[in-house]
Amino acid sequence: MPELIAKPALEKAPLTLGTCRLEAVDLGPITSVALFPGQEKAMAKALKPLGLSFPDPNSLSAKAGVQLVWTGREQAFLIGVTAPDFGAAAAVTDQSGGWAALRLSGDKAAEVLMRHVPLDLRAAAFPPGRAVRAPLGHMSSVVIREEAGFLILIFRSMARTAWHEIEVAMRTLAARA
């Protein structure tokens, strides 16, 4: 077997412009958990040791650095831990190599991100605990609200484009300050 070397999707130093900061994040394992019909109870049981519950649409369940983020109908991403055995409750696929994560923080973070994501991302409309599937420019993304900003999941192959797009929005807003 050849020895494969894990490389980050982005080798970029964190970028700070004004009060806004953009950084690449290594989230560890990402697993898609797609619930089979009628398996809610079995799923709840499998998630119990993690202290998580299967999230409602546009939300997430989090505990001790592990999160289960809604990503579609009866589907969620388990982030930050190796997936436990879900038995026959769900179809489970490893997505770790497919996604890159960016963290955007600062008091202008919502204004920056709303230049590319056509949703109201201000704290009043999109508070912590919320997570949505949304287009970032023309790219599919998962946007997760955090206390200080946003965690953005993007297809790994588009990570550099996403970084560039967000950087342009940061520069534009910083120039106006």
């Binding site: 649409p57 546009n58 579609g72 109908r73 056509p118 949703l119 949505v132 599937r133 949304a134 287009p135």
Partner: peptide, 11 residues
């Protein structure tokens, strides 16, 4: 029904 009101360009 899942995501809430969204722009038609998402569809």
């Amino acid at each position: 029904p899942l995501c809430g009101p969204r722009d038609r360009r998402e569809f």
